[in-house]
């Protein structure tokens, strides 16, 4: 039973990690807390759902959701952040303008869905269960774990082993030096925002499929959790986001299963304070961290 809960928690945590990674990537590179990141998860779920309802096969709907949420994310950068960055006032101003972007996206979604909770048609994803060593695993859970593992691998290869990754880390660490080396920071900003949005979009579809529920406010709890994940893991740290995301998933599942209901968030945030008392920069963080850290 405990093993079953832990496994369920790891799968839920994989989605947290996927979502939080985009959040931490944007923070690491831009020093921007993008409070519209939850709305991108919601937008991904909406795009995926409406695509499926329109008769598009799920795999292609997922691609549409990723590209769509990635494009929205780029749009937010261009419309809400780019001018602020040029003025050098990004840190505080960007928080306000990301709240604005969040409101716009959420109210559009509210209009489109007429404030209803939407559902994927029955068996959009094949309902199949397997048993391993006494554990019950659904095909959906396997698919989630597999796709998240693949994307995390892809992202860390991209960041740590390619020219694009070196450029991203250069801009994160020292934008002025990067420019003098021929890095075009605007192109890097566009790409990090696209990657971050696409991961949030995929997370949105996965969340929508897991709970079979898509609604305009679904991004909010994930944004709060992403804060916890990112702060626990260390701001800007990729490995930290993965470990903290998985840990949070397990903790939350166990708390829901074994403790009186309604205590989950209390426990999660108490743990956050506890960790910060011992390690103020998070589990993997260092002061003045950037995405350069593994």
């Amino acid at each position: 039973m405990l093993a079953q809960q832990i496994m369920n928690g790891l799968v839920a945590g994989a989605v947290y990690a996927l979502f939080a990674l985009g959040f931490t990537l944007v923070f690491g590179v831009h020093r921007i807390l993008n409070l519209a990141h939850g709305a991108l998860l919601m937008a991904g779920a909406f795009i995926g759902l409406y695509a499926v309802l329109a008769g598009i096969p799920l795999w292609f709907a997922i691609i549409l959701a990723m590209v769509g949420a990635g494009t929205l994310s780029v749009l937010i950068d261009v419309l809400a952040f780019r001018r602020l960055r040029a003025s050098g006032q990004a840190e505080f101003g960007a928080i306000i303008s990301s709240i604005g972007a969040n409101l716009v996206l959420v109210s559009i979604a509210q209009r489109i869905s007429e404030t209803k909770v939407l559902r994927f048609p029955f068996a959009t994803f094949p309902v199949v269960f397997y048993r391993f060593w006494g554990l019950r695993v659904s095909l959906l859970q396997l698919a989630i774990a597999g796709s998240v593992a693949f994307l995390l691998g892809l992202l860390s290869w991209l960041i740590f082993h390619t020219s694009l990754g070196r450029q991203v880390r250069a801009v994160a660490g020292n934008p002025r030096a990067a420019v003098l080396l021929g890095v075009n920071p605007d192109a890097i900003y566009l790409r990090t925002f696209f990657l971050s949005g696409a991961m949030a979009g995929l997370a949105g579809v996965l969340v929508g499929l897991s709970f079979n529920s898509v609604h305009f406010m679904m991004g909010e709890p994930y944004l709060l959790r992403a804060f916890v994940v990112v702060i626990l893991g260390g701001l800007g740290s990729i490995a930290g986001a993965v470990v903290a995301g998985m840990g949070l998933g397990v903790l939350q599942t166990l708390a829901t299963a074994y403790l009186p209901s309604g205590l989950t968030d209390t426990i999660i945030f108490s743990l956050l304070f506890l960790v910060l008392m011992v390690r103020p920069n998070g589990l993997f963080g260092v002061a003045n961290t950037g995405v350069g850290r593994r």
């Binding site: 070196r166 660490g173 030096a177």
Partner: peptide
Amino acid sequence: PEGRQILADLTVDENLLLGQL
């Protein structure tokens, strides 16, 4: 630039490879 401005979080080789850009 003044003060070198090397990329502290990248390895020596990564700094050099970035120079190829």
